[in-house]
Structure formats: structure tokens, C-alpha cells
Design a protein around this nucleic acid. Structure first.
Lengths: 222, 222
DNA sequence: CCATAACCGGACCGTCCGGTCCGCTTGTGC
DNA sequence: GCACAAGCGGACCGGACGGTCCGGTTATGG
């Protein structure tokens, strides 16, 4: 562990930032499958430079995605102080959906097994934590049904994000429309109990772990 | 147009079926990204044979996916005759989610631009049509809020499918839980109107078309 | 201003993919 | 049972991808 790293040379620092910017742009526009070559090209550096700063493509992705998620977490923390706890939740969901709409990388990162990446995973956990806080506050004020958890809400919202990415350029209201439906679900009286139980972050870890944490051989499975 | 095609030779027929079966299995288990080599291998035929029966991988995918979608359409038609129109809708949604759970190919086909494929597109349109019928019937009986359309429901359900694929092996109830939330949304009184308007199949076409329908030259577009 | 280490960048590598080709085999009609 | 088309299957192709390497360049400290 060389936690002690001497400062980068000026040009190195500059190139690193350029790469991060280029990747952010391209991921936003076209998703995570853009090639490293194109990223390096837009950053006006060679591929070698890219791989020196980010040993693998996944490292680069993680750096970018974590940045975006952290912004979202920050926005969530702001909303914790909002006067209306119920509206804060829905405002936050709108934010979550909106950002996934203009940042394909975000949406893809949460969909894929990329959640197995330590950095992304912890950023995601923070996000869930913030939403959980918002949610509990709203539930304490009886603005949202008491029997749903943060992951329940996030899952329900995931579909909205997908719908929005496909349709936003046809009907920009589609996201709001879907969110209105989500609101209906969350504010409905809980007369019939939901089946099952709310998932936890540990559940998520367990769900992600099997296939992804060990990228190497899973040969035993005949 | 050679709509007149002489019957396949016996071995050819047999191999075609083997390929379809193998592809169905593999797509189910591991999604659409399995390689054609592996499919041919499991079918005990050579790669050449695969490509003679299905000129491109997409053709093979379409053949498999359309089969699955048609089953789903058939199930929907059954439910049109069900006594309780409201329950029929939710039963159908459960079916839709359930099948996407055990058939990754289905889920991926609807997510990707694969909807641009003519066969898949028309099968999907049929599915939307059936759901629309079910929905309208339930709405006529005031079992479901009148301001949602089939595509609204399908979008809302898409997230559930994703959640389910990730979590089903941890908590098999998760799908039901999410569906209960969807039910809340759809049965809630429509006191606050939904923003926007219900999407139509034409909207979907327009949303899909730009990048996908013309795999060849899309050069004019800056 | 020079020595040198850090850094640059593009040529290069191995791998994997979908798709093609062609010499060989096999089912089929006469 | 024979002739021959239909079918077979694996070697092969082109190209894209992520990742490596090394000869040349440039910032930097003495």
C-alpha cells in the first residue's frame, strides 16, 4: 500500500483530468461500452496514457461513476433538511431518475454487475443510506406507507429510469408521469400488507457476490 | 420472395430444432450474449450449420424471443376470458414478470434496441395489444384507474423484472412484493392527475427508430 | 543548462466475436 | 443402388476489444 504518493507531474495531472472529462462526456452520451481508444482520442492523449492513469477500463468507469453517485448523495443530504419530508423523498426520486436520464453511465452501472466494484458498491450503499434516511423521516410523518424500504423504492424506480431513457426525447413528461405512479404506490394506504420483506444492502451483496466477485474460473458448474 | 420453400431434409429439420432448443436454453440461463459457438456446440452441430439456418445471430435471437413472447400473448388471450377483470391484469403482470425472471433473453430483448427487429417488434406490439385489452376491461369495471395505458403499466413493470432477476435467488417473494406496489399504484384513486400522457406504440416506434431501424447509413444525421 | 526520471503515445499483442467458405458426408429420388 | 443435390462442420477471416511495451519527449531539480 503506497498511500504516500508524491504529487503528479504537471502534465500528468492535466492529462488525468482530461481523461476523466472525456470519459464523463462519452459515458454520458453513449454509455459504458464506448471503447478506451475513443476516450483517449477525445482527451487528446494516447491509449498508453489512459492505462497509466487507470490500470483497467473498469477503474476509469468506477472513477467517473462514483463521482456522479457522490453528487447524488450530496443532493440527498441537502434534502434531509427540507421542510416537507414527504415531498423531499419524491423530489429526490425525481433527481435520481433525471440524472440517470442524462447520464447513461449511471443507469448502466447500477444495472450491471458493476455494483460488485468496491468503489461503486460503497457509493451506492451511501446513496441507499441517504434515501433510507429521507424515507424514514417521511414515514415518521405518515407521508409514506411504513412498510417499504429504500431498496424497495429504488427497485421500483429503476424501471422508470429505463422508460425515461428510451422515451425522454419523445415525451419529456414521461418521467414525471411514471414518478406520479410511483408516488401513488408509496402513498397508498397499506391496507393489504406487501408480500415478502424489504431487501437490505446485505441481500444486495449476497445477490451480487456469486458471479461477479470472482471474475476467474467458475468451472465447477457443469 | 420465395414464399414457396420446399420441405427441409430430415436431418436439416432435426438440426434446426436442436439449435432452437440449445439457444433457448442458453439464452434463458445466461442471456443473449452467449456466443454462437457455444450454442452450436450444445446443439451438437457445427457453426456453419447454425448460420445456414439463421443467417445472423439476431435472426436466431428473434426466432427464440418471438416464441417466448407469443406464449405470453397466448396466456394473455386466455385471461381475457377470466371472470375478474381486475385480477386478470395483475395475474398477467405476474406472468410477465415471472417469465422475464426465468428467461433472461426476454428481459434483454425488450430492454435493448432489439425491439427494432421486425419480428420482435410485432410480437411485442401484440403483447401490448393484449395487455391493453385486459386493462381496458378492468378499467371499464373501475378496478384500475382510468388514466393509465398499457405502456405505462409495462414500463412500471420493467423495473420489477430487473429487481427480480437480481434478487430472485435470495428472496423469491421479491417479485410479488414489487408487484404489490405496482398494484397499489394502479388501483389508487386518480385524484391527482398524472402528468403527461400515456405513450402509444407509435411513440415507441419513434423512440426506437432513429438509431436502429436502419442499421446501414445513418450518416446524414450530424 | 544539463542529467535524469517521469511521462507520453502509438505500435503491438492475444483474445474473442460474428460471419464465410469449401471439401466431405449423407439423405433422397429415380 | 446409384447419382447428385442438399446438408454438414470446422478451418478460416476481418475486425474490435482491453491491455502492454518501449523508444522518444519533456518537465524538473541541482
Amino acid at each position: 500500500m503506497d498511500s504516500e504518493e508524491r504529487p503528479l507531474r504537471a502534465d500528468a495531472e492535466r492529462n488525468r483530468k482530461r481523461l476523466l472529462d472525456a470519459a464523463t462526456q462519452l459515458f454520458r452520451e453513449r454509455g459504458l461500452e464506448v471503447g478506451v481508444g475513443e476516450i483517449a482520442e477525445r482527451a487528446h492523449v494516447g491509449r498508453g496514457t489512459l492505462f497509466r492513469n487507470f490500470p483497467t477500463k473498469e477503474d476509469l468507469i468506477a472513477a467517473v461513476v462514483v463521482e456522479r453517485m457522490s453528487e447524488l448523495v450530496a443532493r440527498g443530504r441537502e434534502l434531509i433538511a427540507a421542510p416537507d419530508a414527504g415531498e423531499a423523498v419524491f423530489e429526490y426520486l425525481g433527481e435520481v431518475v433525471g440524472r440517470q436520464q442524462l447520464d447513461r453511465s449511471l443507469a448502466e452501472a447500477v444495472a450491471d454487475e458493476l455494483l460488485a466494484n468496491p468503489g461503486i458498491r460503497s457509493a451506492h450503499a451511501e446513496l441507499v443510506g441517504v434515501l433510507d434516511t429521507l424515507l424514514k423521516r417521511a414515514q415518521a410523518e405518515h407521508k409514506i406507507r411504513p412498510d417499504v424500504g429504500a431498496l424497495d423504492v429504488l427497485m421500483l424506480t429503476k424501471g422508470v429510469c429505463q422508460a425515461v431513457s428510451a422515451f425522454a426525447h419523445i415525451d419529456p413528461e414521461i418521467g414525471n408521469r411514471q414518478l406520479d405512479l410511483v408516488r401513488s404506490a408509496l402513498t397508498a394506504p397499506a391496507d393489504a400488507p406487501l408480500r415478502g420483506r424489504a431487501a437490505t444492502l446485505e441481500d444486495l451483496d449476497r445477490a451480487i457476490a456469486p458471479g461477479a466477485t470472482r471474475p476467474e474460473r467458475a468451472a465447477a458448474q457443469g
